[in-house]
C-alpha cells in the first residue's frame, strides 16, 4: 500500500512538473503574454502588492521626512530639473542647429514627441529577485500594454522594456538587467554601439556599452542615447552617461561602463510608449 502511495506521489510530481513546463512553453510561445495561470494569480495578487507598495513608500517617505526638511526636498527636486535642463542646454551648444532642434524635443515629452503614444503606470513591485532587475507595473493588456514596448521615466530617461504582460499588470526588464540589449550612440561623436546589461555591473546599478574599438573616442560624462536601430526603441531616448572605459575579456575591443540617468530605486511612476514613429 505504501509502495502504491509512493508511486502515485511520484506520478503526481511528474504530472505537476509537466504541467508547469507546458505553462512555461505556452507563455514563451505567446511572445511575452502571461500564461492563464500566471495571469490569474498575478491579477489577484496585484492589488495586494499595490497596497503593500504604497504602504512601504509611505513608511520610506516618513523615514525620509524625519531627517529632511520639506523645503530641502523641494529645492532638491527643483535643482534636479534645473540640472537636467542645463545638461540638455550644454549638449545643445555642442551641436548643429538641426541637432539642437532634435534635442529640444527630448524635453516636454507629451508636447514635443507627438509621435509617442503613452500609457502611465505606477510601480507596484521592484527587484523581486536578487538575480534580475525588474519592475512590476499597475497596467497590463487591458490598457494596451504589449511585450516589447519601451518604458521611460517622466524625465524621458530609458527605464527598460516590457517583458511580460498580464491583464492588469506587466513586468519591465530594466536597462541594467542581463537580458537587456539596445542600439545606442554616443551623443558627442555619433559613434554607434550596443548597450547591454551585465551581471557584475547590474549589482552596481550600471550597464555596459560593448563592441567599441580600442582607440575609441569616448570621455567620461559623454551622454549615451538610443539609436532607434531595429525599431524596438525610439531614437534619442537618454540612457545614461559614460563613467569608465575598459578593455573587454578578448582584449580586442573595449567597452564603456554607463551610469543610467534614471534612478531606478526612486521611481514611482513610469510611461510606457505604446507606439512611436520609427526613425530612418
Amino acid at each position: 500500500m505504501r509502495f502504491l502511495l509512493r508511486h502515485k506521489g511520484l506520478l503526481a510530481a511528474v504530472a505537476a512538473v509537466l504541467l508547469v513546463l507546458v505553462l512555461a512553453v505556452v507563455s514563451s510561445l505567446t511572445g511575452g503574454y502571461a500564461s492563464p495561470v500566471s495571469n490569474l494569480l498575478g491579477t489577484v495578487f496585484q492589488p495586494l502588492q499595490s497596497g503593500i507598495a504604497r504602504l512601504s513608500d509611505s513608511i520610506a517617505s516618513l523615514y525620509g521626512y524625519m531627517y529632511e526638511h520639506d523645503a530641502l526636498k523641494e529645492e532638491n527636486e527643483r535643482l534636479k530639473i534645473q540640472i537636467a535642463k542645463m545638461e540638455e542646454a550644454a549638449r545643445l551648444s555642442e551641436a548643429s542647429n538641426d541637432e539642437n532642434e532634435r534635442l529640444r524635443q527630448l524635453l516636454g515629452l507629451s508636447e514635443r514627441r507627438r509621435d509617442f503614444v503613452f500609457e502611465s503606470a505606477t510601480i507596484t513591485e521592484r527587484d523581486a529577485s536578487n538575480w534580475a532587475s525588474t519592475l512590476t507595473l499597475s497596467r497590463g493588456s487591458s490598457n494596451g500594454i504589449a511585450p516589447g514596448q519601451c518604458v521611460i521615466s517622466e524625465a524621458g530617461y530609458l527605464v527598460g522594456v516590457i517583458s511580460e504582460v498580464g491583464a492588469t499588470w506587466s513586468t519591465v526588464t530594466t536597462l541594467i538587467d542581463t537580458d537587456m540589449e539596445a542600439g545606442a550612440f554616443i551623443f558627442r561623436t555619433g559613434l554607434s554601439a550596443v548597450v547591454e546589461g551585465n551581471f557584475d555591473l547590474m549589482r552596481q546599478g550600471l550597464l555596459r556599452m560593448s563592441y567599441l574599438s580600442k582607440d575609441v573616442d569616448v570621455k567620461n560624462g559623454d551622454p549615451v542615447l538610443t539609436s532607434g536601430i531595429g525599431g524596438k526603441y525610439p531614437r534619442d531616448i537618454v540612457i545614461g552617461t559614460v563613467t569608465d572605459l575598459y578593455m573587454d575579456e578578448t582584449g580586442i575591443s573595449a567597452y564603456a561602463v554607463i551610469r543610467p540617468s534614471v534612478e531606478l530605486g526612486k521611481l514611482q511612476q513610469v510611461f510606457v510608449i505604446k507606439s512611436f514613429d520609427i526613425s530612418e
Binding site: 512538473v17 512555461a24 529577485s129 534580475a132 526588464t173
Partner: peptide, 28 residues
Amino acid sequence: GAVYGFFAGLWCDAVIPPVPAVHAILFL
C-alpha cells in the same frame, strides 16, 4: 511539503520575474 512547494511555487512564478515554472519545479 511537495504539494505545498508546488502551489507556492506556482504563485511565485506568477508574481516574481523573470522565468515561469522554475519556482514551482524547484519548490516541489
